[in-house]
Simulated assay, not measured.
Amino acid sequence: MTRQTKALRLDDVRKVHGAGPTAVTALDGITLALPPGTFTAVMGPSGSGKSTLLQCAAGLDRPTGGSVVVDGVELAGHDEAARTRLRRQRIGFVFQQFNLLPTLTVLQNVLLPLRLAGEKADPGHAVAVLERVGLAGRLGHRPAELSGGQQQRVAIARALVTRPSVIFADEPTGALDTRSARDVLNLLAESVRDHGQTVVMVTHDPVAAAYADSVLFLADGRIVGHLPEPTADAVAERMAGLGETAAQRRILEGV
């Protein structure tokens, strides 16, 4: 597959917080390329750079160096208004906190990204997306009337309604019970399998990571491993190894 057909490409992406002796390097030369229709989980010890990677890849934060290309469009070089339009057109977000507006109904929450983008809202398409996530009977309900799993499914529908090329998910099952988490992960996998979208998911849960096609492991802001066709046991074993390495490094740094 050519460089132009990658859904997401990062070339030598770096992110440094602060300057001088107190500077902290969150990302240290990340390079990766993900084809359309793939599901990638990102894992690593606390402080490894997972969330920073997601934020830079999704255009929510500007990297200190390197380039980010989403669906063939370079994120750098645009002003904030253009970056916002690009995110709304090509990128979907699903976070651990559902971020639903409590005064809006389910349908209104799902239609909100289209209204914010200044596009003509298509309630029929929104209803179809809500049917896809199993909430056709909850259109007029407000978030407080839904379970946590149902609220996360609304958030997924909201991310899908703009037909994004790439969906970024940051710990999307972290606040859910086991059954709701499984439903959410199946929906993300379905977006990849049946609709050709690309999903990038940060998670700490080996069971969640096992729903992905492959897992990228981060440590100290670098990609340190890749596991195709992951199983929960294989992911847990790899994470245990990373945790031991991080602990050994902290001991050495404290000497």
Rank of each mutant, 00 (worst) to 15 (best):
D194K: 11
R222E: 13
L53S: 03
I251C: 06
V129T: 14
F217M: 07
L116V: 15
E229R: 15
E131A: 05
D194E: 14
P63V: 02
G29L: 04
G221W: 12
G140H: 15
P172N: 04
Q4T: 08
T245N: 08
T245S: 13
L116K: 10
G92L: 05
F39Q: 11
P230R: 04
G140L: 03
L146W: 01
A246Q: 13
T2M: 04
G59E: 11
A212V: 15
P45D: 05
G174E: 00
D170C: 00
L176F: 01
A236I: 07
F39G: 03
V207A: 13
E190V: 02
P45K: 03
L116F: 14
G44Y: 05
V68F: 08
L218G: 06
E145D: 05
A181W: 15
A128Y: 09
A23S: 10
A126M: 06
N186R: 04
Q197I: 02
T173L: 01
S46E: 14
E119T: 08
A121T: 05
Q248R: 02
I156R: 15
S48Q: 08
P123H: 12
A136H: 09
P164D: 08
G243I: 05
T203M: 01
T84Q: 09
P36L: 07
P36W: 12
F168I: 09
M1C: 10
A82P: 14
R83P: 15
L34I: 14
L176A: 02
A219Q: 11
T105I: 11
N109M: 03
T198E: 01
V68L: 09
A240E: 15
N99W: 12
V255C: 09
G254Y: 13
L54H: 08
L32V: 13
D122A: 15
H78F: 09
G47Q: 09
R88I: 01
L176H: 10
N99Y: 13
V42C: 01
A246W: 10
E253Y: 07
H141G: 05
G66N: 08
D220T: 11
H141A: 12
L54F: 08
V166T: 02
T198F: 12
Q152D: 06
T38I: 03
